[in-house]
Design a binder for these strands. Sequence first.
RNA 1: GCCGAAGUGGCGGAAUUGGCAGACGCGCUGGAUUCAAAAUCCAGUGCCCGCAAGGGCGUGUGGGUUCGAGUCCCACCUUCGGUACCA
Length: 942
Amino acid sequence: MPRYNPAEIEPRWQAYWEQERTFSTAELPQGEKRYLLDMFPYPSGSGLHVGHPEGYTATDIVARFSRMRGKSVLHPMGFDAFGLPAEEHAIATGEHPRIQTERNIAEFTRQLKMLGFSYDWERVLSTTDPEYVRWTQWIFLVLHDTWFDPQQKRGRPIHELPIPDRVQAQGADAVERYRAEFRLAYETEAPVNWCDKLGTVLANEEVIDGKSERGGHPVRRIPLRQWMLRITAYAERLLSGLDSLAWPGGIKILQQDWIGRSEGAEVDFFVGGAEDFEAWKRQRQAVGLPEIPEEETLRVYTTRPDTLFGATYMVIAPEHPAVPRLTTAETADVVNRYCQAAAFKSERERTQGDRTKTGVFSGSYAMNPVNGQKIPIWVADYVLASYGTGAIMAVPAHDERDFEFARQFDIPIVAVVEPLPQAENREQILAGEACFAGVGRAISSGRYDGQPTAQVKQLIVQDLSAGGLGRKAINYKLRDWLFSRQRFWGEPFPILHELDPQGQPTGVTRAVPETDLPVELPELKDFRPHGRPEPMLEKAADEWLFVELEGRRYKRETNTMPQWAGSCWYYLRYIDPRNSQALVDPAKEQAWMPIDLYVGGAEHAVLHLLYARFWHKVLFDRGYVSHDEPFQRLVNQGMILGEAELTAYQTESGTFISPSDVRRGEQGLTTAAGQAVLPVAVDESQVIKQGDGLVLADRTEIRVESRSFKMSKSRGNVVNPDDVVRDYGADSLRLYEMFMGPLEATKPWSMAGVGGVRNFLDRSWRMIVQQDAADVVLAQEIVDQQCDSDQARVLHRTIRRVTEDIENLSFNTAIARMMEFVNFFTRQRSRPRAAMQAYVLLLSPFAPHVAEELWRTLGGKTTLAYEPWPTWDEAALIESTLEIPLQINGKLRAKIVVAANSSREELQQAALQQPRIQAELSGKQIVKTIVVPGRLVNFVAK
RNA sequence: GCCGAAGUGGCGGAAUUGGCAGACGCGCUGGAUUCAAAAUCCAGUGCCCGCAAGGGCGUGUGGGUUCGAGUCCCACCUUCGGUACCA
């Protein structure tokens, strides 16, 4: 009987591991440690899909491999369990989100356990656990209690913030307000993306094309009191910290671009009238550049101070505080209307679409500090209030956006940078008819003329600084992080707002005392939004909402934290998941951190990783963790696409045409002649291969397209791991996920491929287990004797390659090596037991269940999880003879078998003896001979 | 537009980093076994010409470097992913 039967083997070994606590991890590592982390999943109602086990299997292989190499391994799993779907479910059904969340977690847990991952399940956590929420809130209070010291470039306790005397003199409330301006967690009135339909505010990343990511409902911008995190203070550290990390280059670049550092200058333009300009300049010369510009100046940020002489107008953002000041009686109406319209549009609407620039003249003029030229000030929404100073000097000759705007509104264009002589459309650029954003030499720029751009930049900034008119400046695209949501299903903020005797807020806030954490969510009977922009928790009963503390009355903060909060620090909690005294014990933290390998999807390349790094740096500055960066090595697993789909194209009249004859235009798919074309799904049986492609079997001149698509419910190509495990077993699923291709690559699913690796496991089984016995007994070929030299070579080569491939995360090739091993040994009449045991150990990280079973059959008494990893013997790898290719003029002409250690001369002689080579060379002259010992011989002949 | 990744048989993918292109798997073809099928085993399988021996061509396209290029350099094309006026 005993065929390989995963349905019986797998649950049995899973139960064994659980009962024996095989993978429970010691509190502290002994010897070398490995912290191997998966990005934890959101437990959605649809369960695991086959994308999840891809990364999970990769880290599990490394975890099992590392244990066998004697490392202490921390390999945990948990759940990112706050999130909108559970709340939407609650709104629809009235069921508390916690109930559905727990059900989903139970289902995920079942599925994860079914796949045999060697997680330490005793450390499992969920971001929704009250004990976890407690420490999320605690970290928020750390952020609230921290300011960033720009001198020391680090976060420090708020009580260390120097308070200016003038503030101190105004009393405690003034001091508190002053501090609030510096805290890393602060409140502000911010324009937010409000969605009427969802009844909630959305983060920018949750808004796609002016619509909500979830549901596609319209979104508009309204101002609302928000919690923000001052991540911008850490921009420089977040940028420079990337250098030391072993991350994919592309991800680092994404983060760099997101942070968006630029160097330039801030320049003040005088807007107080031409007659006072000289006086203003003299005054600036005397007192220097003020920290905050006076009312009669407009401060701009530019990365091209060298083009200052080409500034022909200025633009301020519609939200700029100077807008009313710069508006005149005549322009007031137009400007007001323009600003209001801009405010109503979402950031997305303002920055996308037709791209035709809009704007209105403010009515005022500014004086260019370098040449005293009077230039108009416009209000336009192509300038963002949230970047730089919210105002720009516009140099249409050397900035595409300004150029477009100037063309539209007939504003002069003056070239002040001369391109290199060979530049194309140089004449047009100099005539102000084309835009040139590159570098060159200064022209029409007074005493700077003739100097290269880089030098002019430097000189102008120097001169501006000396005159008190400007200074060097650095800016970042990164914005502060909008950290509050108006939903129910999130962590409450541990913040209290003080009330006066009339029940009105006094504006003073305080933190909930640490001993009162966690602040749990209030009980609600009804989860439907109240439809106002205010947070959901406003619906809470008064007993929750109002708090008395030390004789004062407070109202609780009713915003909740975004889903990011829990995922920003979960990797720390795994280290010490039950600690009730601290988020993590410092000794354990120091022992296990940093994370040696972090595997997850590229969709978290920017936000999750940036936010988590930010929190980590704050915790580091405040002394709660021992490293500056949490994720030493990062790998992004590739996306798994659906099974390849065959498509043929058919015109309306039913004629099939080849894909190359299909045009993709505004009308959709058409023929070259304009006739509509429809894609038709084709079955594999209707298709044959021909030449370099596939064609219809009965119409071989018609080509068929083969493509894979993202898995989606709507396309119906989602693969469910439960089905795969039922039909093939978990070991086959794991193996297939790794065999498909490189971990980082996007690759299509193929059920036939799963069958292929299942076949390999069957063969592995039959190599060791007797086929027609009643019980699981060893195959007759298994012998207790030494490998012969061929067997030893195959064995040791396999050990070496599998070991090196795992170290390089090259799992697909590791599996190919094991397949070669099985192909070789199934053909051997005698198979040494030791070789079989070594093989089973190599297989075990990939297919742990069948490996355990085979290990036991081969005489193992307990789990193989801590058996020493096999080592290879270099001596066994050496081959006595080699086949060497012989080339003439780089073309392969013959092969010879020679002793492996043949010298250069011996090789050349043997090659010249070879009959075919002799024949080819006769009548020719050998110009050159290349001999690479162990590799090849190449004759260059004429 | 910009940034990133990638283009190798019918398909998924290998190739010690400049040295026999196509490992391994799927699929397909033929054979053994079987009453038959499944399963299993054996052999073959880049394309073209040829009965064969053999020959020619071949890693997205075009050029280059080299005795030798999938791999290095230059230009371009295509696909996928990300991003959007950041001064």
